[in-house]
Design a protein around this nucleic acid. Sequence first.
DNA 1: TGTACATCAGTGAACGCGCGTTCACTGATGTAC
DNA 2: TGTACATCAGTGAACGCGCGTTCACTGATGTAC
Lengths: 195, 195
Amino acid sequence: MTNNANSVNIESASHGKARYHHGDLRAAVIEAGLELLKIRGVDELSLREIARTVGVSAPAVYRHFPDKQALLSALAREGLRQLAEAQRLAAEKSFAEVGRAYVRFALANPALYRLAFAAMPDEFQPDGAAYEGSSAWLLRKGVAEMLPANATPEKHHAAAIHYWSLVHGLSMLMLDGQVDPDDDLINQVVGETIG
Amino acid sequence: MTNNANSVNIESASHGKARYHHGDLRAAVIEAGLELLKIRGVDELSLREIARTVGVSAPAVYRHFPDKQALLSALAREGLRQLAEAQRLAAEKSFAEVGRAYVRFALANPALYRLAFAAMPDEFQPDGAAYEGSSAWLLRKGVAEMLPANATPEKHHAAAIHYWSLVHGLSMLMLDGQVDPDDDLINQVVGETIG
DNA sequence: TGTACATCAGTGAACGCGCGTTCACTGATGTAC
DNA sequence: TGTACATCAGTGAACGCGCGTTCACTGATGTAC
């Protein structure tokens, strides 16, 4: 299921409770946090429940994270990584696919997606160390390729924000239940601007 | 400051604490809730603090709202009313102004705007009693006027959602600190699609 | 190979916190006769 | 006009809750000699 480098010694016992055995508790905590975000809203996610899920006492978490906020940042970081990865995969087909992949990722990971934007670490800001290769960066690059060669930097900026607003807005409206999460509609809305 | 029909017997004493005197406690609670949303996030807003602000015991609130959720719904309702009102005012100038007014309202009322979308009452859904005249309805109508006469219903739908996504997305990105809340940028992004 | 010691990841108990909500009550207001 | 009574908005005390975080601790692991 989770196939990234963070996989760790978690044993799903028959009664369904994950148990921590030894090894990298930090990674196990993050993995459990991601897992819980599939069934819990961001507000309902507690450090204690994550510890419980891992099979470890709550204070143990403090050996690896200074406080809850740091844990949430780590989860947001991982969410942003996964989102960017989904975009990269889609980009191999076409840029229009990227927008669709973006919205689909949000729909598939509501709480994680929300957390990523509510608690986005500073390093993902345009001047931050993680900006290059990030979700926002990929969108900006893709949009830039659609613009005429003589487009001004202002135009580039506005177009990038425009497209980001579009996919982010559609994602949020669908997540909040304002708009039916219909696949055809996603295609129409996201595909309208960019073929 | 607040100039709607909900104004009520609140006395702002010199020490800054509002006191409830008699009259419509329901309206006073809503007014205090709106006031607190200017300085508190949605998550930080508690029924007890609202009661404290009004100068009334917490259980008194239960005479007027079955539970906290109902209170939040009432606040969301009022936020949506104000947003629609801002759009109507802007619509007197041009439709492009509506989009700008929309984003500006979000920026001026971050918590209230978030609450409106996180806790939008059912009546504001397209088949609900409050849909006509609502923010979403106004956007849809404005967009419809920009479309060619022979546009299909599907096209109308997609265009409406498209524009809503754009302004909502830009609002959220700015509220979440992902995009600088720059007025020129708002004009460029919102004005790009619709002159 | 054996012993003394430092390190440090994890434990269980406890802290204070503010929350939403329930309860039995009080006391003002209005109505019936 | 006066009295008995019902209504009901608001009170203060209390409930149980799970939370984030701190604390003094234990016990396994590895290293120095």
